[in-house]
Design a protein around this nucleic acid. Structure first.
Length: 190
DNA sequence: CGAATGATATACT
DNA sequence: GTATATCATTCGA
């Protein structure tokens, strides 16, 4: 079933990042429908999180969408070439988001291979995940309860021991906040 | 392990 | 408007 708006409006982004593991991300982009299980996420927890683009309440054209009501996509370009998909959470004006770092193909694996230019059944980073799903900067602000990007709960549930948490990747500039255990992924073999 | 890559934010003139 | 530093990464060696 489609994840309801209320899932995205909860006030703590960290358990949302954890709960997204096992949910199914769907896209219908360029006439191609693909779906994939979310296997790795990271939480970015608002204006007090030094790793977040919204640290200190910063507002720029790029990160404006982080301040939207939960349940939209925040897509930005990193290192000039990689498009990264984030899921905006919390109420209007509170900039929380979850970075989707990894997916595993369910439907449309051949489309994902073609987009990636190589085998893409399982992606190995946030840039490759977004690319396989067809998501690019133009999808910034897309409503996740709409027809081009959405997330479904197929009832997959993982016990706590199947999930690993640890420090986020690539945020060494964030000082002590770089050590927060805001990254979640499936233990090998899960 | 290290170079590539160019959008973006910020600090200037 | 122009300049510069930075970057929630990726790929090939």
């Amino acid at each position: 079933m489609l994840l309801p708006r209320s899932f995205y409006l909860r006030d703590d982004v960290v358990p949302i990042a954890r709960d997204l593991l096992g949910m199914t991300l769907h896209t219908r982009i360029d006439g191609q429908h693909v779906s994939a299980a979310i296997t790795e996420t990271e939480a970015y927890a608002g204006i007090n999180d030094r790793a977040s683009h919204a640290y200190g309440g910063r507002r720029t054209p790029r990160n404006e969408m982080m301040y939207a009501e939960g349940g939209r996509a925040y897509v930005y370009i990193c290192y000039g070439i990689h498009h990264l998909l984030n899921i905006v959470t919390h109420l209007l004006g509170v900039p929380h988001a979850v970075l989707v770092r990894g997916v595993r193909a369910i439907e449309g694996a051949t489309v994902m291979d073609r987009r990636r230019g190589r085998a893409a059944a399982t992606t190995d980073g946030p840039g490759t995940a977004a690319q396989a799903m067809g998501i690019r900067r133009a999808h910034d602000g897309t409503d996740l309860l709409g027809a081009s990007i959405w997330i479904e709960d197929d009832g997959v549930r993982y016990p706590d021991q199947a999930i690993v948490s640890g420090p986020r990747i690539g945020v060494n500039y964030a000082g002590a906040d770089a050590l927060l255990p805001y990254r979640f992924f499936l233990r090998k073999g899960s």
